[in-house]
Design a protein around this nucleic acid. Structure first.
Lengths: 339, 339
DNA sequence: TTGTAGGCGTTATCAT
DNA sequence: ATGATAACGCCTACAA
């Protein structure tokens, strides 16, 4: 309601003074400062941040663009982002692309014009050239989970993780190992496929094309794809699944076929979302520091916003780790079957 | 980069004309419109929405305030909200209060001053008087999941749902039924307690105070509270749990004690989040139309924003429904134990 | 149909 | 230490 001019009038000072007590309190005398503050209080004055944003060309808002708001992984990232952003007085504009490249571009464009101070992209499909094309390099962008040459990012080595997962199954003794992947138009999944194939090749097992099945990266996709894979290839005894969300529903799909996990089919997932430790059997998975990635990305972004430097993009590689639980059968002695 | 004046200059017209082709295209001649559009294109002109917001006193942004960004329930709500908001050109500012009343107030305040066009509150702890106190009734607010007298909201009958859940356990034959609740400072949980107690009383079972245990509404809370409850009261044979997230981890807690579900302890949850159908045993729960609640709340809010009327607040009650799966033991014949 | 000019609420620069 | 005022970029009477 009340604007800065009202306050100025009521306090008998100029608007500049009001602005000063707000933004540079030390440049104004103790006396007037106190008086102004009282008047602000009594008028219940709150500065309009739109106007402030216009004047400063800064909105204290950052955009977080994710491909699936319903995937706990992205929400854990979001929490990390929000935690540091909020502590520094920034707010989060949440954008859900549903894996669509179109929507992703659309959002990046909307966001640049909405004058967000920066953008965090999570598992994006777009490449840096296009991004810069849209943002005109006017605002910083950091990407989570994808290695893009000239973009700030925090990521993991998807190929390495997938390799580890597959190798673990091989080490246990499995030979016919399937791979359930998310959409191959996401870089993440291409990398995982590479890792899977590398492990298979290294063990001198044969790479069967049909062993690799692609589905949507959600519960439904995992269920459908798992059913398809085990029906087409009943000889498969182990499956590496590209993400835990798909893996969790794959568990259900496999059980619904009357098969036991890990006795009949062993499973290794990827991500280590909280739920993975709560399904039955508990999911063996490649754990990645999801929350931390959100934190770090957020910090990187805010740093660029507050102290812009024309450095070459910073790239932070975080480590994945095999988390052995039950679904791979390692502990339960399935291993002995092969000994 | 380029602003409206640059475009005007380049096109050889006034800024008003530029603004018109943007906002009232029909009031400008076909000829100049086309020309202006070409110039806009060539300059890659994008209107600054901060400035527009300032001029129009409208930001095309709504705030969504939730208590736990990591709870799939709220993210399903968020998806509903985002889906309709995005389709109408609005963006979502996501705020995570972590169940803190302080943070909730803080966010409402920040958001009103950030000039969001409206606020959606999910399972809020604040009451309408305080809300209006902060927003000064300047922007519409709709609440999800809580019945507040003079506030727009879409909600369910928590008491009724809890009653149904508890009654189901009673009907199966259970007599010693526990209740694991979320924090009692959330209205939702108070209601559920009422429903639980009502069902117990109606069945002329005795209400044991210790049968009711309170914990945080998250995975950790569910785990800890379930352990506490079954240790303190080993005679309990069935538990109604206030939300699925807690229930899912309670499942794990109970199993880790060597007890079987539902044979030793039966469980009924509340919410019906997607995961509930994927844990083992599959969770019997009170299902509520979560996504739809997000949709409807969003629609209500946008309606108020775009055609403000001083109507008395609209209240939409949606239905809950008992979803019988495995964790209650009904289908698996646990019932016979008691026959 | 188009242009002029004042206003939206702040901030920062320059004076004083 | 404080005040006056030009920006920030856009919108919309009101005029022409």
């Amino acid at each position: 309601m009340a604007n800065i001019r009202d306050v100025a009038k009521a306090a008998g000072v100029s608007v500049a003074t009001i602005s000063r007590v707000l933004n540079h309190p030390d440049t104004v005398s103790e006396e007037t400062k106190k008086h102004v503050q009282e008047v602000m209080e009594s008028l219940n004055y709150k500065p309009n941040s739109l106007a402030r944003g216009l004047a400063l060309n800064r909105s204290h808002t950052i955009a977080l663009i994710v491909s699936d708001i319903l995937n706990p992984k992205y929400m854990e990232i979001a929490k990390g982002v929000e935690d540091v952003a909020h502590s520094k007085g920034y707010n989060i504009l949440l954008c859900n692309t549903e894996g669509s490249l179109e929507k992703e571009k659309e959002y990046i464009e909307i966001m640049s014009n909405r004058m967000v101070d920066g953008i965090i992209l999570s598992n994006t499909r777009i490449d840096s050239k296009e991004i810069y094309n849209i943002t005109q390099k006017k605002i910083p962008v950091v990407s989570i989970g994808k290695t893009v040459k000239d973009l700030f990012n925090v990521y993991i080595d998807d190929e390495e993780g997938a390799y580890e997962a597959t190798k673990h199954l091989i080490d246990i003794g499995y030979k016919d190992i399937g791979f359930i992947s998310g959409p191959m138009n996401q870089n993440e999944n291409k990398e995982k496929k590479k890792g899977y194939e590398k492990a298979i090749a290294e063990a001198e097992l044969k790479i069967v094309k049909g062993y690799i099945q692609e589905g949507e990266s959600n519960l439904n996709g995992g269920y459908i794809t798992a059913k398809r894979l085990i029906k087409k290839h009943p000889n498969i005894r182990a499956i590496f699944i590209a993400n835990d969300l798909m893996a969790i529903s794959a568990l259900d799909a496999i059980k619904s076929e009357g098969l036991r996990i890990p006795e009949d089919i062993a499973i290794v997932g990827f991500d280590n979302i909280a739920m993975s430790a709560l399904v039955e059997p508990k999911l063996t998975t490649i754990s990645q520091p999801i929350y931390k990635m959100g934190l770090m990305a957020s910090r990187m972004l805010l740093e660029q916003i507050e102290t812009p430097e024309e450095d070459s993009p910073q790239q932070i590689l975080l480590q994945t780790k095999l988390k052995v639980r039950e679904s791979c059968g390692y502990h339960s002695g399935v291993k002995r079957i092969f000994d």
